[in-house]
Amino acid sequence: MINDKPEVMSKAPKIIVITGPTASGKSALGIDAALALGGEIINADSMQIYQELDVLTARPPKADLAKVSHRLYGTMPGAKRCSAEQWRTLALKEIRAVHNQGKIPILVGGTGLYIRALEKGIANIPEIPDEVRAQAHVLLEKLGGEQFKENLAVIDPDMAQKLNAGDRQRLTRAWEVVTHTGKSILDWQRQAHGVVPDFDYVRFAMIPPREELYDNCNKRFEIMLELGALKEVENLLQLGLDPSLPVMKALGVPELAEYLSGKLSLDEAISRAQQNTRRYAKRQMTWIRTQYNDAKVVNEKYSERLRGDFFTFIRQSGLTL
């Protein structure tokens, strides 16, 4: 069910934000919301923006894309890096386009950094040189996550405390920023800048019970394999992309790549990918509970049974069905 009573809404342009961990039912809720409200969906997932990953990022299938308009899905080549600032610029453009049509934008995704950037502004972190990125990648491979985190704690203890040893992307990002700029990402975030548009957010957070969510993560990865995830990774590897690019670190890509290179058995690759997916889902839930605690919580995976609760809340929020 959906918790809490809705607040009195302002007259600012409205945006619905639907966030939550992977495999929690965000996409289904987004489509129901778009169909009911005549809205359009805008991607807020850092991996679903890349063209090459369809199956492994659980990008909405063609049948769903045909039901309602979806924006910023599969629009950027994996050879590029999409930063939070770039996504924010793209998202604001799409939000304004949807508002100009008299419709409601519905942001769907679990990338907390993107949502924070949209709502709070962006930290003006200088561009990190390629050689510094390469150093971070080499050091992590050499030391492993635990030792790398201990090294980070020496130069950025506050950021290291927030990160899990398995969160390779954020660990290297934290190391790159503090090494190159002399300041922690947290310091840059406290100095976030940029005009924050006056939007009226209706926020939903999907937080199913942990064991149910983990089971969903495991099953979904098995389904991804049936849908062609292995071939997708094989095609990605043939592009010869820089291994430090975000698309190469997407959930399931490193593990299946190691299977294809003969370093892991298929069962080992599946097990590791499922474990890393569960860990990622746990980090997403932690972010929501600590950074997005004013959202209306849907405390089970979204299903047809919850539609009544959702639409009742929407009506109370002053949105027209």
Rank of each mutant, 00 (worst) to 15 (best):
Y302V: 10
S317R: 02
F199Y: 11
A192K: 14
V154C: 11
Q238L: 12
G144A: 10
A174L: 04
C217H: 02
I95S: 00
V196A: 08
T320G: 08
V253Y: 04
R133I: 03
E304Y: 14
I41K: 02
E52M: 07
Q275Y: 10
G110V: 00
D215R: 01
L186R: 04
A160Q: 04
L264N: 09
N218P: 07
D4K: 15
R59D: 05
L241S: 02
R210G: 08
L29Y: 03
V68N: 05
V108N: 00
L260V: 09
A63N: 09
I15L: 15
G308I: 03
V202I: 14
F199W: 15
A91Y: 02
T57K: 01
L113E: 06
L107D: 06
Q169K: 13
Y259I: 08
G252R: 02
L319W: 00
L72R: 00
D309A: 04
D294M: 03
A91L: 07
P209C: 08
A123Q: 04
W287S: 02
S271Q: 11
V195G: 09
L118P: 01
N218F: 04
V132H: 00
D242N: 13
L260P: 07
L107P: 02
E7T: 01
G30E: 00
Q48S: 06
K67N: 10
V247Q: 02
R71E: 11
S24C: 10
Y214W: 10
P21Y: 07
E7S: 09
I31S: 00
T290M: 08
G121S: 05
R279Y: 09
Q316M: 10
V253L: 03
M47P: 05
N276F: 09
D156L: 14
F148K: 04
R173A: 13
A257L: 10
P21T: 06
P208G: 09
N216I: 03
F199L: 15
W175F: 08
L237G: 06
D198V: 11
A44P: 12
D187P: 07
G110T: 07
L53V: 06
L227F: 08
Y114H: 00
F310H: 01
G240F: 01
L237V: 06
L143C: 06
F311D: 00
P105A: 13
R116Q: 11
A281N: 03
L143P: 05
P197G: 09
A84G: 07
V196Y: 02
I223R: 14
A273K: 01
L230W: 05
G109Y: 00
Y302C: 00
N124H: 13
A250H: 01
K231E: 15
E222T: 10
E127D: 14
Q147A: 13
T286S: 12
S184G: 12
R283T: 15
R307A: 02
P246Y: 11
E52Q: 14
I155C: 10
E131F: 02
E268K: 03
Q284C: 10
T179M: 08
D158N: 15
P13S: 14
L140K: 01
T19R: 07
R173M: 14
G262T: 08
R190N: 13
